[in-house]
Design a protein around this nucleic acid. Structure first.
Lengths: 209, 209
DNA sequence: GTCTATATTGCGATAGAC
DNA sequence: GTCTATCGCAATATAGAC
């Protein structure tokens, strides 16, 4: 068992993550990949069975924090729907911090699903949407939220207001001043904004943060 | 002047719009393009000077409604910041209705800007962000919105809550029940939600819609 | 495990006939 | 304006030496 074995695999995985995220699966060649890793062209086939196997390995690693977060969130049972939504908002921020490229992989799979990535994205995002919608339904039953709120649409709004920032960040920071610690600050204001938007004001004014 | 001239050009443009939107610039080959259009391989070079010229022509057409909307919005001077934001929300819905593929082209250019598309996207989205931020600043000066609101972040939230729906619609409608006339209904609720989120409730409760 | 060398396929672009 | 034929290049994958 030579040390180069694991090193080469890990190196390929790291460089593939960068390249696939920035250029997309089709636009990255095995040559480019192995040249950057200072390995032979055939290393990809040897370690991952080909370019597709390497991409699959990258995706699994990228989605790990989502998988773990969903398990955590489904295990706990926080007191109120609002606390659950806040936890979700915090997890979104945490996950994007842990995996800066994750939004890119998800967007690419939304635009053009691959055989392996498509189902992964669908399964994970499906679970997330179910969690948010279920939480919103709970809140509706408890009379916390505005009458007539469409929970399916409200779930998309929640996902949108939190994730769009991370998706468009590279471009947005060219055009609007985002400043220091922007990620956490954005998420906090966005969650407050969303909460003011859905909460029934005659039942509960939200004044934390 | 033969009829085939304009026909071939238009046919290529239409098919290229579909293919580039669905598969991306790099993943579409000139052969695939011309076979679907039932034209010769060399037609692309003849009419557009090459694959890149064709892509450029597609993008110009896709962005036309944004360009026109910005001119309309900058020409008019609606009474209040809130009316301006509402107009913006309506234009977003209208534009996505006019160009169902636009969000895909924008996302692709955000993920991997091309030489021609990158500047186009940057310029157009920059103008939009400037308009929203300026409108939010106006509202802040008039005391319409909550104290301490970060207008840069709030502008991203506005763009996110409106556009994310259109971006993820293909996937979202697999997982959440979106129903009939969903686009307009979504946009209306999202705008209301956003407004409740930013408006200073002690100054103005918003009860239209 | 890593290497070279090669087989095979597909790409965009274009010259030149019609 | 459309066609065929072809050039030059880059892609993935793999066989076989070390």
């Amino acid at each position: 068992m030579k040390m180069e074995d694991k090193d080469s695999r890990a190196k390929l995985l790291a460089i593939a993550t960068d390249l696939f995220a920035c250029k997309g699966f089709a636009a990255v060649s095995v040559r480019e990949l192995t040249q950057q890793a200072k390995l032979n062209v055939s290393a990809v086939s040897y370690h991952f069975g080909g370019k597709e196997g390497l991409y699959q390995a990258v995706l699994e690693e990228q989605f790990r924090p989502i998988r773990e977060s969903m398990e955590t969130m489904q295990a706990q049972t926080p007191s109120t729907p609002i606390a659950k939504l806040e936890m979700y908002a915090n997890r979104v921020t945490y996950i994007h911090g842990q995996r800066p490229y994750l939004s890119r992989f998800i967007m690419r799979e939304l635009l053009k699903p691959t055989a392996y990535g498509g189902p992964i994205v669908e399964r994970h995002l499906g679970e997330v949407y179910q969690f948010v919608m279920e939480t919103l339904r709970e809140g509706m039953e408890q009379g916390l939220f505005r009458q007539g709120l469409d929970v399916a649409h409200a779930a998309v709004s929640m996902a949108g207001i939190l994730n769009f920032y991370f998706i468009t960040k590279p471009l947005a920071e060219k055009m609007v001043p985002l400043g220091e610690d922007s990620d956490a600050k954005y998420a906090m204001q966005a969650f407050q904004l969303y909460l003011y938007g859905i909460v029934d004001s005659k039942t509960k004014g939200n004044e934390n943060g």
